[in-house]
């Protein structure tokens, strides 16, 4: 079950959307890059870590700001079209 528990600003949405896209891009890039291309591979590994951290920080920061309702074993989703935050249980 999903229900709306809040929303974020357009700017905040853009931040997480960019991180989301970047994370997906890095994951798919990781499937084709290997250690043969050492410099780029190292950059990728570091980038994946940094992006994952920033991703989590965004959610933590937004939760601090908006105090959305949460649930045991639930998770939040963001709708990029409406900027709404949904609680999925």
């Amino acid at each position: 079950m999903k229900r709306i528990v809040g929303s974020v600003t357009e700017q905040e949405k853009k931040e997480i959307q960019q991180l989301f896209e970047r994370r997906n891009g890095l994951n798919e890039l990781a499937k084709i890059l290997n250690a043969d291309n050492d410099a780029l591979y190292q950059k990728l590994i570091q980038d994946m870590g940094e992006t994952a951290t920033k991703f989590q920080q965004w959610w933590d920061c937004m939760y601090e700001k908006y105090k959305w309702e949460k649930a045991e074993n639930g998770n939040w989703e963001i709708n990029f079209n409406t900027n709404e935050i949904l609680l999925v249980e």
Binding site: N73, N75, I78, N79, N81
Partner: peptide, 12 residues
């Protein structure tokens, strides 16, 4: 709360 998931729209 578990890891958040996100919808997949595209900015046409």
């Amino acid at each position: 709360m578990s890891q958040q998931t996100i919808f997949l729209p595209w900015q046409e």
